[in-house]
Simulated assay, not measured.
Amino acid sequence: MSSPSLLRRYLPWLVLLLLLRDGVAAAAGKGSGKVSAIIVFGDSSVDTGNNNFIPTIARSNFWPYGRDFADGLPTGRFSNGRLATDFISEAFGLPPSIPAYLDTNLTIDDLATGVSFASASTGLDNATAGIMSVITISEQLEYFKEYRERLALSKLGEAGAEEVVREALYIWSVGTNDFIENYYNLPQRRAQYATAAEYAAYLLGLAEAAIREVHALGGRKMDFTGLTPMGCLPAERMGNRAAPGECNEEYNAVARSFNAKLQGELVPKLNRELPGLRLVYAETYGVLDAVVRKPQDYGFENAERGCCGTGLFEAGYFCSFSTSMLCRNANKYVFFDAIHPTERMYSILAQSVIDTTLHVFL
């Protein structure tokens, strides 16, 4: 049989093999960017209900919180609905809401797609968590170790647990309370650190240690979210003695400085030093600052007060005491209480972070 005849005979099979090869390669390339779960560490910006299960008054498991969540039920989220991390989870093809780790009703299937260890009122500094007797970052890391063991002892087995941990996206959102609840309100840290910049350096060291610990436990894909303009929170406007009702620009400057160190120094340093780490910095300051300065451009009517009560100082239980003054439509407000954004603002923050940063993991 001549060579042309052989070629005609086997050409269809060769084409099929090439197509299969390209398909496998494409699938492999797509899979390399897959996120198995969203795992969250932090404070009230990402606490999905852990504080419900500990003895603290830093809770939001009562109406009007959760008013616009599924079935209108409070979950422990400090908002009228979902948080930014919930929207991020959904964008990655994972469940539309991330469960709180301390919820005893969770199944292994629930845990395997993501969980939040976050605790409202906590900080990078364990002393911050002590103010309201909440879960420290150190304790959140201990829960993460326990989480890994639970996965390994489940039907997933050791190999399956390692894959979940390796391919998960770790989101850190913490630091604001260290400044506004601790450094600026209590004397101990100010006695140790003469300036906010010195205290920020201490906090960044704690952040580095926490990231290194998760890396040592198998985490590779991580996002550390920068601080928002904390001086523009309604409660901080209310407490601004220098210019009542206006943003506290000193606090905002501290947030920008912290973010610059985080983005420009800590993130590149850890990416250089830790094998396989993909750590990104999520910029949220500019987004919230732009909305607060010109809320009408984003479809909001009010950025100076929260939806709850007078909107000037209410948060937590104080919101439940003033429900007669609750706004009708939270979508018109940037903040739900005097500290925390509304679901709509959280969705804007989530989309911005996905578009500018987290898309590298999609």
Rank of each mutant, 00 (worst) to 15 (best):
T176N: 06
F318D: 07
Q140L: 03
R293V: 08
N271E: 01
F53N: 00
Y251W: 01
E213H: 08
I180Q: 02
G226R: 06
T356N: 11
P229N: 08
N80W: 07
V174Y: 05
A91G: 00
V292P: 11
S121Y: 00
V24M: 15
D223S: 15
A200W: 12
T310L: 01
F361G: 00
S320K: 08
P244C: 09
L94D: 04
R272I: 00
R189D: 13
F300G: 02
K30T: 11
A127S: 10
E142A: 12
G76V: 05
A200L: 10
K294H: 15
F117P: 11
L141C: 11
R241S: 02
A161C: 10
L274A: 09
L312P: 03
R77A: 03
Y333P: 10
L349F: 05
F179R: 01
D71A: 04
T136D: 09
R212W: 09
A58I: 13
L6Y: 09
I180F: 12
I57W: 00
L6N: 07
A216P: 10
A26R: 10
E265F: 15
V292F: 15
S154V: 12
G311E: 07
A25Q: 08
V115L: 00
G31M: 06
A159K: 14
A315I: 05
N259F: 07
L111P: 14
Q263H: 13
